[in-house]
Amino acid sequence: MHFVVCAKQIPDPETPPSAFRVDEAKKEVIPPQGIAPVLSQFDGIAAEAALRIKEQTSGTRITVISLGQERARDAIKQVLAMGADEGVLLDDATFQGGDSYTTARTLAAAIRKLGDVDAVFCGRQAADWDMGQVGLGIAELLGWPCAIIASSVQCAEGKLTVKRVLADGFETVRVPLPAVVTVSNELGEPRYPKLQQIMQAARKTVRSMTPAELALDPSTVGAAGARLKLERLFVPVAGGDCEFMPGDTPQAQAVALAKTLRAARIL
C-alpha cells in the first residue's frame, strides 16, 4: 500500500490573541515574533492515522506532501520523523497565494504524478484558514470517494472503514480504495518522534515537483488560479465594552449579575 499524508506548515494556533496581528493592506497575518510556525495539528493526526495502519500492514509506505515555501520542509521533516518514508515539497513561486481550489488542484496533480497511491490522509481542516475543503477537493479532482472528520481509520480488503464524528454521535462508513480520508482530533494525539527518528528523518529524501512536471498550467494554480478573492482580512473589534458588575463583595457582584441578566431579558 502507498499512502499520502498532506501536511501544512501554519502560524502557531496557540499564539496568544494579544500577539495576533493582521496587515489589512496586504491581507496577511503578520508572523508573530519569536513564535515558530508549526505543523497544522490535524495534519499530525492524519499522519498518525496513516502510521497506525502502516504498523499493521507490511509493505506500506507513506509519502508526505506539503505545498508551501521552503520553511514547510520542517512540517515534512516532522512527519518523516514520525515514521513516513519520503517527502515531496511543492514550493514553486507560482504555487503561492492560492485558495482551497488551487491547493487541492496542485496536491491532486502531485498525487497523480506519484501514480500508485491507495489512500490520501488529510487533516479535517488546516488550523489557520479553517476551511476544510482540500481533502474533499482532492477526492473530487481524482474521482475518488472521501470520508471526512474521522475518529478512526482501518484498512482491509481494499476498503477503508472509517468512524466519522457527527454533530450528535458517530457513523461508521466503508469506502473502496483509492480514497481520501480527513482526520479529526478525536482520533488521538500524534506520536512524538524519538531523537533517533528525528536523526533518521534528516536523511530521508524530500523531492520537489515543478508545475511543468505536474503538467499544471501556471494560470490555474496559486494566486492566478484562485476562485475565492480575499476582499478583507481584519481582526474583529471585540466589544471592549464589558460591563463589570458593581459591588465590593463577590456576593454583591453575583446578585448584580443575576439582576442585570434579568433586566436585559437574557435570563
Binding site: 464589558c242 463589570f244 458588575m245 463577590p250 453575583a254
Partner: peptide, 29 residues
Amino acid sequence: ANIFKAARYGIVGDYKLVLPPLIEAIRAL
C-alpha cells in the same frame, strides 16, 4: 484575561466565591 474583551458582562473574582451566591441569586429570580 482575553475573555473580558468579548464579554458583555463581567465579574473579576474567584469563581469559588462568586458562583455560590450567583446560584442563589438566580434561584431567587
